[in-house]
Design a binder for these strands. Structure first.
Length: 436
DNA sequence: TCTGGGGTCCTAGGACCC
DNA sequence: TCTGGGGTCCTAGGACCC
């Protein structure tokens, strides 16, 4: 059910340009306008590239070891990812957006993107607002952004993408506020570039000879329901036609599932090492859980064995092996979660195998204060709570795992590589930017 | 040698109940 | 010879997103 006629909707999406690279360069004037890339955890592959690096032929998700030589040759600076820095820069960007349009009109969508509700902005002011958003964020935070504005979220993403594609001409801003502009944008967008159409559906649509967003927008609703993911496809169709079907989300950061997973620095074959890693991930997941005042009633552990690869086969992740336990009582106490996690790890482990990755998932999450009593568990088992919040506070302020459970170990043979990490300028006093 | 991590939503189908 | 129908709940898996 769309809004009644006469009711006008308008959404913006504000998206940081090459966010991780931009964040790295804010405190490094010597790298402004220079080619830069940021690597994933474990320095595995390239996950953010500046325009200058893109122009030298580097692409997203290139494995680092394959492009290392080319980076050196082209004088491209590589950083390991530094999530403390990105989290802090993200907060500054979001706070700026809240200041400009009011905090009730901002929905943080990811670390580097936010949807804005612009229903209340008079149509003739939309262009000005778009430029104001861009320049205010840039002045206050040093991060460049692109702005797309349109009557639906899907169309605003489309506008943003087109603005980014041609930055010189668009000045990183595109407003789709007439049927003509919308039609033009639809024609210029290939199906695979639509927000909500991934690889699988793109292939399928092209087999039906549907190549661009305009063609897709002309399909009947029932066809979409049958072929493009049921109700999801129907919503997408409406959005393409300019009828809002995806509204602003309330900002509750209560996750239904919390996961902590990592690749190992190198394949691991000792049960002890894997248990240390799983214990560490469990502690981390439990911290996230407590931060949202939740308690988990299901814990699952998974491992991914290192696969034998045949020459010339395209890379793929091996199948993951997982087991879960339903806890007798939902908990957020690390030690109560580590115990079943250790047991599950032992069950999964096969002697002689090499593993390259492990992870922990917490689900069945309920609010901590409504944890129901269980007749079969003795009372007074909540004694871990105080200790937990103390550990969280210390760990938060120090930003490194100063306090750990013994199970997490100290050897850390499994720890990931991070050879190129920048200092944590904004969150650690001893790594503040030096001004000469 | 070496290819990230953390989420959400939806659907189909099985188990189970009356 | 004949072998129901409808509802709910749960889980696995597929698709997507950044």
């Amino acid at each position: 059910m769309g809004p009644p006629s006469g009711d006008r909707r308008m959404y913006a999406i504000v998206d940081c340009n090459s966010f991780y690279c931009s964040a790295e360069r804010v405190f490094r004037p010597d790298l402004w306008h220079k080619p830069v890339v940021v690597l994933s955890n474990n320095d595995g592959c390239v996950i953010s590239i500046s325009d200058e690096a893109k122009n030298r032929g580097i692409t997203m998700t290139d494995p680092f070891f394959k492009v290392k030589d080319s980076l050196v040759k082209n004088n491209i600076k590589a950083f390991s990812s530094n999530y403390n820095l990105y989290g802090d820069m993200s907060k500054r960007v979001m706070d700026t957006l809240r200041h400009v349009v009011g905090k009730e009109n901002v929905e943080v969508y990811s670390v580097d993107e936010a949807f804005l509700n612009l229903d209340h902005i008079p149509p003739h002011l939309l262009d000005n607002l778009a430029f104001e958003l861009r320049s205010t964020v840039e002045q206050w935070t040093g991060v460049a952004v692109s702005v797309g504005i349109a009557p639906t979220k899907v169309l605003s993403k489309m506008a943003n993408r087109l603005a980014k594609k041609n930055k010189k001409q668009s000045q990183c801003v595109m407003v789709l506020n007439t049927p003509e502009k919308i039609a033009d944008a639809l024609i210029k967008t290939r199906v695979g570039d639509i927000w909500g159409i991934g690889r699988q559906y793109a292939v399928k649509l092209e087999r039906f000879a549907i190549y661009d967003a305009w063609q897709l927008s002309q399909m009947p609703e029932e066809w979409m329901r049958k072929n493009v993911g049921g109700v999801t496809g129907v919503r997408l169709l409406k959005e393409l036609k300019g009828e809002p079907a995806i509204g602003m989300e309330d900002e509750l950061d209560e996750k239904k599932m919390i996961a902590t997973t990592r690749m190992f620095g190198a394949p691991v074959k000792e049960l002890g090492d894997i248990k240390e890693a799983v214990a560490t991930y469990t502690s981390r997941a439990a911290e996230k859980l407590r931060r949202q005042h939740g308690a988990a009633s299901v814990i699952s552990v998974f491992v991914v064995p290192k696969e034998d690869r045949k020459e010339n086969e395209p890379f793929r992740h091996g199948p993951m092996q997982s087991l879960h336990t339903i806890l007798p009582l939902a908990t957020a106490v690390t030690s109560e979660l580590i115990k079943p996690a250790m047991y599950l790890t032992e069950q999964l482990f096969k002697k002689g195998s090499f593993y390259k990755k492990a992870g922990v998932m917490l689900s069945g999450i309920v609010p901590d204060e409504t944890v129901q009593g269980n007749l079969f568990v003795p009372r007074g088992q909540n004694n871990g709570r105080m200790l937990m919040s103390m550990m969280d506070n210390i760990n938060f302020s120090m930003r490194d795992d100063v306090l750990k459970f013994a199970a997490s170990g100290t050897a850390r043979n499994w720890k990931m590589r991070q050879e190129y990490r920048s200092p944590r300028y904004t969150t650690r006093w001893d790594e503040l930017c030096e001004v000469k």
